[in-house]
Nucleic acid binder design. Structure first.
Lengths: 251, 251
DNA sequence: GACAATACTTATGTATACAAGTGTATATTG
DNA sequence: CAATATACACTTGTATACATAAGTATTGTC
């Protein structure tokens, strides 16, 4: 039913032969990211198979990957559904991310080689030259953070961070939609990079953690606004987010 | 060839109908854990399928899970192989684990409820009553750490830690094979629990991190011993571990 | 005798057919 | 009218058949 409305997206024609599985994964991931599939909605192999016009086998593998990454979860009725999340989950997410990003920055300060340090500085300048488009900044921001992860030279930390960031698509709009977030982020990024260039792990860690704490605040603002908007638009349906009364886990 | 030697393991008869996939996963996981499949060895779907006497479909899913968890990795020739690791990987593993365990302990100190605190104390005493068997201690130790993870009440941190610890089976024997490690671990565990009971996040974090640092030292000792033993036993084959010259990433 | 091209083998990716379990709806009986 | 039992439909799990790509070996030609 809902799948019909998703369209066929003719730009992204079915791949020649190799990668139907990856392709199905991308399509589902995009559908969740764009809220075409809403949290709690059941996702069935047969339906997706019909939608994407591929057999159940690659669809199955794609859904299992999404299950492992937490974007899908087992439904009470059996089968899988798009994961629910609430403000508590967002709080937990950022608490964990703060630790991991802090660790990455500290290790980058210790282990980044000269080339990696130069690239970090360059990316900083490149971001300043960017237009005020939230999407462009979000993309460059991701590349910037990936650069730090790489400079940390720790494969396990990299894996953990990648797995963690898979959850981001569920959160909706980027934090760069919050007012002044772009300017703030630039200042915070600068402090992180300066600490890394100065080979000061403690300062790098604290700067990175502060950066994530601020991102969390912006995130909450953006999400709360979305909740309000959604509640207004359909006042008698149940809101996407759960009850807001839970104590935040942040320190 | 190697799969014939693994036997049929009649205790664990093939499951009724549901769960061949999980069962295949367990069998492969156990095979890697017990070094029946050595690092670098190629693992083919058809072979495993014939070995376990199930079709390729559940084997495929099991292998994909192991790939996602890092126990298998893409082979240069195509297909999958048991992941290689070296002392550098072990160093990176413990560096990341130190951060995550520290975070879990700190959050547990803040968020553990009275029941969880009581259970932590009880587990501590239970471990003291255990015989000096490394395997028994390893098992209880795992439950103890899981209890801390749960008490942290952070689903993302829990996921990260679980994913990280999936790598442990590749490391071989437990660190409890190192002399005096059982006594040391008890002392370190006690400090962690005391800090959690005292609701002191900083002390809990530092105690947990110190605990992991010590575990790392024991791990290196155990692995080095294994390297020596292996090298003696088959002096003209290539050792399981790579060259040891890499700088450690530890702080 | 050596090098290149072609064919065959092998392993993974994909599709489809089949089985089993669960939930719901309908019909029958008390 | 209500409750229970049976049957059917739906969904996921498993098996097998088929396609494709890659690597190797063999054969033919220079």
């Amino acid at each position: 039913m809902t799948f019909d409305a998703l369209g066929t997206d003719p730009d992204d024609g079915r791949p020649s032969a190799r990668g139907r599985s990856d392709w199905a994964y991308e399509r589902l991931h995009a559908a969740i990211r764009d809220s075409a599939l809403e949290p709690g909605q059941r996702v069935m192999e047969t339906e997706v198979s019909a939608w994407l016009k591929v057999s159940r086998t690659p669809v199955r593998e794609a859904m299992h990957r999404l299950l492992a990454e937490g974007l899908l979860e087992p439904a009470l009725t059996g089968g899988l559904q798009v994961s629910f999340y609430d403000l508590r989950a967002i709080s937990e997410f950022y608490a964990t991310r703060e630790r991991l990003e802090g660790a990455a920055a500290a290790l980058a300060a210790e282990h980044a080689d000269p080339t990696e340090r130069r690239i970090l500085s360059a990316m900083l300048e490149a971001m300043r030259a960017l237009p005020a488009d939230p999407r462009a900044h979000a993309r460059e921001n991701q590349a910037f953070h990936e650069q730090i992860y790489g400079a940390a030279h720790n494969r396990f930390l990299l894996r953990s961070l990648r797995a963690l960031l898979n959850f981001v698509p569920l959160l909706g709009r980027t934090t760069y939609h919050a007012p002044d977030r772009i300017t703030e982020a630039d200042r915070e990024h600068t402090e992180v990079v300066e600490a890394i260039l100065a080979r000061d792990p403690r300062r790098a860690e604290e700067a990175a953690r502060a950066h994530i704490r601020h991102a969390y605040n912006s995130r909450v603002r953006v999400v709360m606004e979305d909740v309000r908007t959604t509640a207004e638009r359909r006042s008698h349906e149940k809101p996407v987010l759960g009850p807001l009364g839970h104590a935040s886990q942040r320190t």
